[in-house]
Amino acid sequence: MALDRWIALCLLGLCILYGYTAWFTMDASLAPFMRRNPIWPSTFPKVLSVLGISASFIILIGLEKGEEKIGEIDHRRLGDYFLGQALVLLGLMVVYALCLRPLGFLFSTSAFLIVGSFILGERKLHVMIPVAFIATGAVWYLVQEVLGIFLRPLPIFVGV
């Protein structure tokens, strides 16, 4: 079996476990007044589990490949697939998560977008920096002001 199908099989197991948790264990602990609501806290996890199970089945059956032959992933030649970039990006995600609270959302997210796009090969700083700042500012404004969820915009030592 190809590597993509093995990954789909693992994801299918995770989605089934996630779905079981969302459908059966999360709803049991709801307060009585919340049981009359049309949307419960478990609604989004239920939708995610159904979508994940569907996508995993599509990959397992092979429907996503269609008529044209897409090259299989050769696990013996993983070095040819930019594995270094992927691992550096995963490390950058971990650093981003660790820096989010002490350095603030605006600085951490902008730095993550700039360094991440540099790792992926973008070299036009005059495009990369404004796009990162605009995207970060827009997301912060939507989450903070529109949704009303507090995101620490500046580092802790600034005192906001």
Rank of each mutant, 00 (worst) to 15 (best):
Lys69Ser: 14
Gly71Gln: 11
Leu113Lys: 01
Leu120Ser: 08
Lys69Met: 13
Val127Tyr: 00
Ala111Gln: 06
Thr136Asn: 04
Met93Ala: 15
Gly116Lys: 08
Tyr81His: 00
Val131Trp: 07
Arg101Met: 13
Asp74Gly: 05
Glu68Ala: 13
Arg123Gln: 08
Ala86Glu: 08
Tyr96Met: 09
Leu125Lys: 02
Leu83His: 10
Phe105Gly: 03
Arg76Thr: 11
Phe133Ala: 11
Val95Met: 07
Leu98Gly: 11
Ile134Phe: 11
Ile134Lys: 09
Leu103Gly: 10
Glu68Trp: 09
His75Ile: 14
Leu87Met: 01
Leu89Met: 12
Gly71Leu: 09
Asp74Asn: 08
Leu106Gln: 06
Leu120Arg: 02
Met93Gln: 12
Arg76His: 13
Arg101Thr: 15
Phe107Asp: 00
Met93Pro: 10
Tyr81Trp: 03
Leu78Tyr: 09
Tyr81Gln: 04
Val95Asn: 00
Phe107Ser: 03
Val95Tyr: 06
Leu103Asp: 04
Val88Asp: 07
Val94Ser: 12
Leu89Gly: 04
Ala111Tyr: 07
Ala135Gln: 02
Ala97Val: 14
Phe105Ile: 01
Gly79His: 01
Thr109Gln: 05
Tyr81Gly: 03
Gly71Lys: 09
Pro130Cys: 03
Glu68Val: 14
Phe112His: 00
Phe105Met: 07
Arg76Cys: 09
Glu68Gly: 12
Gly91Ala: 10
Leu125Cys: 06
Leu78Pro: 02
Ile114Val: 08
Thr109Val: 11
Arg123Ile: 01
Ile134Gln: 02
Lys69Val: 13
Val94Ile: 15
Thr136Asp: 02
Leu120Ala: 11
Gly71Met: 08
Val115Met: 00
Gly116Thr: 01
Leu78Ser: 07
Met93Gly: 15
Gly104Cys: 08
Met93Arg: 14
Ile73Lys: 09
Phe105Ser: 03
Leu120Asp: 03
Cys99Asp: 06
Ala138Ile: 01
Gly137Glu: 06
Val95Ile: 03
Phe82His: 08
Pro130Glu: 05
Arg76Tyr: 10
Gly84Asn: 15
Asp74Cys: 05
Gln85Pro: 12
Leu125Asn: 07
Met128His: 07
Val115Leu: 12
Pro130Ala: 02
Leu120Gly: 04
Phe107Asn: 00
Leu78Val: 09
Pro130Gln: 00
Pro130Asn: 03
